[in-house]
Amino acid sequence: MRQFSYSRPDTLDTACHTPDHTRYLAGGTNLIDLMKSDVERPEHVVDLSALSMSQIEERPDGGLRLGALATNADTAAHPLVTERYPLLASAILAGASPQIRNRATNGGNLNQRTRCHYFYDPDMACNKRSPGTGCSAKGGRNRIMAILGTSDACIATFPSDMCVALAALNATVHLTGPEGERSVPLRDYHRLPEDTPWQDNILRTGEIVTSIDLPPLSFGSHHTYLKIRDRLSFAFAIVSVAAGLQMENNTIGKACIAMGGVGTKPWCVPEAEALLEGKTPSPSLFRDAAECLLQGAVTDRDNAAKLKLAPRVIIRALSQAAAGTPQSQTQKTIF
């Protein structure tokens, strides 16, 4: 970790007006990790924790607002979340560990960086860490890397579980920056790497995520977060699926589905959702949806297993959602 200056402003305005080479600090579970690995080298660390952005409150439209500084643990345990958005609670609980969730914030979760081995190792070339140096993951040990949304410049996954549920739920991200406020659909918040993989998302300099809004949306029990990983807990997703289906008389109304672990961002394909809507759940329908979701998938040296697994996980997740039997995050049997 290199030397840096530290400040803890108490107004959003002060926090937005920061010098170059600043990083915001929220829970620190990703930023401190990366600074110790010499991946992040901020000259200034601006601690957001004195700002009041940890509310979880109902919106007039019946939706919910999650403060950017609310912790992942508090969010997952909040009665309004567990009652109305159990899919989100489940996805949060599928990630990291209780200690990390106690510190990790919603805003930090959105802005966490990839777990690509090569990104984390400053001795290795990486376009995301050091633009223009090349991508060591290509042709390297890449069983954890993405198969969707990749580019020649980068094949890293975006590792969040929470954001997969947020994408499925069509959440909206609220930002405040030196030029004022704006809102972006979560599905557009993260970027594809293309030829600028160092830009993970659309956040501009000085901008701060203030909150995340969830639209009023209920799936009853017809939802699931199904996460496949290398051990049964405390590991990042190899493939994960967040699915919510509004079921009426055994017909799918609105369908929401997003994937984690396979894409360079939370992976959504509106055509796949459209394909499900108005139909009766069936294995072949789910297969079609899987095929649609995985269109354009490209594997590299070590990650073909993801492509083998992904359709099966999608089909299973959709079956769970249709049946109204969401995956438990403690009971490891997959129903």
Partner: peptide, 15 residues
Amino acid sequence: GKRVKSCLILAVSIP
């Protein structure tokens, strides 16, 4: 009162 991983917390950030 909450469990956390102390290796990922800057000591100055929890006044």
